[in-house]
């Protein structure tokens, strides 16, 4: 077990190294000269440009730039944002809880809507309830986040005046305001995932409901609720859980459009602004951090699988 764990941990190092080369390389392929962008309306002055290039080591050969970055990144130093001169690590730590809160809330909303809807529509297959649930799921999946977001702002903030239209208040500062600022973006994000979860739950439930053990359970005269809830749903949930984990990982990587619309200062907004401003250290730091989150999550998932399924341990 320990040997397996160490081997698995060892695999992470080359993964991250390859990733770091890719992040750095892709960034170089991005059109637009960071010095010109950073110089803004002062870009007409060649002296200013030369100075920016020298200060940010943009005048050095690429391998040197890369090594300089990696050498410091392994010590946890991702450098400074070129735009606002704050440490990248600080920015990441500041934005991570925001995105985490949003992801958890969106995920809860998705679970609360998606799984019951999937179960009900499988049980009531081809009935009006099923059609309605399917219709809503399709709506949730196909509705663009930015459109739904703006419509919600216009309805709940401008017309009804119930919720603040945008912004973010940390949970620790004012829990009620915090929920008020995040409920709309969480719903926008959650509605799409709810649709996906509903469709998968429905398919898995239909499969489970046609299995022999379900027929046996019914033949034994068990209550239908027990048959559906305890026998069919438990088995049907396994692929849904896998899917849910992937969706949650995606939420943590930052909901780019939703954060932009609702002006939530999270991961997604951080990286979008950094890309548009050619703030390379921030782009590199955020993508690396995201990669690290994903690698860690998949390690945790592997450990959990082993815990759940003893057959994997011998492999």
């Amino acid at each position: 077990m320990l040997a397996w764990f160490l081997r698995r941990l060892g695999q992470i190092v080359p993964t991250l190294l390859i990733l770091s080369v890719m992040i750095f390389g892709l960034q170089q392929l991005m059109p637009g000269d960071p010095a010109l962008t950073l110089a803004g309306e002062e870009r007409g002055d060649p002296q200013v440009l030369a100075q920016i290039r020298a200060e940010l080591r943009l005048d050095r050969p690429l391998p040197e730039q890369y090594l300089h970055w990696v050498a410091r990144a392994v010590q946890g130093d991702f450098g400074f944002s070129w735009r606002i001169r704050e440490p990248v690590a600080k920015l990441i730590l500041e934005k991570l809880p925001v995105t985490f809160q949003l992801a958890v809330m969106a995920f809860l909303i998705a679970l609360v809507i998606g799984i019951p809807a999937g179960v009900i529509s499988a049980v009531r297959r081809d009935r009006p309830v099923d059609w309605l649930a399917n219709g809503l799921a399709l709506f949730g999946i196909s509705m663009p986040n930015f459109w739904l977001g703006i419509m919600m702002i216009l309805l709940f903030s401008v017309q009804l005046g119930w919720l603040p239209p945008s912004g973010y208040v940390p949970l620790t500062e004012d829990p009620v305001q915090s929920l008020a600022t995040t409920i709309m973006p969480a719903f926008v994000l959650g509605s799409g995932i709810a649709g996906v979860l509903m469709r998968h739950t429905r398919a898995a439930m239909l499969g489970a409901l046609s299995q022999d053990y379900v027929r046996t359970a019914r033949a034994k005269g068990l209550d239908e609720r027990v048959v559906v809830g305890r026998h069919a749903l438990r088995n049907a949930l396994i692929p849904v859980v896998t899917l849910g984990t992937i969706e949650f990982g995606r939420l943590l990587a930052g909901a780019v459009l939703t954060e932009q619309i609702f002006t939530i200062p999270g991961f997604g907004k951080l990286i979008v602004d950094a890309v548009f401003n050619r703030d390379y250290p921030v782009v590199q730091g955020v993508v690396m951090a995201t990669a690290l989150i994903f690698v860690t999550l998949s390690l945790i998932a592997d450990i959990l699988y082993m815990a759940v399924n003893p057959r994997l341990r011998s492999a």
Binding site: I150, I153, S157, P164, P165, S166, G167, I261, F262, T263
Partner: peptide, 18 residues
């Protein structure tokens, strides 16, 4: 000072009193 890049959302904030 609150940076709100989206024009519609910025205006919505003003209309709703935020």
């Amino acid at each position: 000072f609150l940076p709100i890049p989206d024009n519609t959302v910025r205006l919505a904030n003003l209309q709703s009193g935020a």
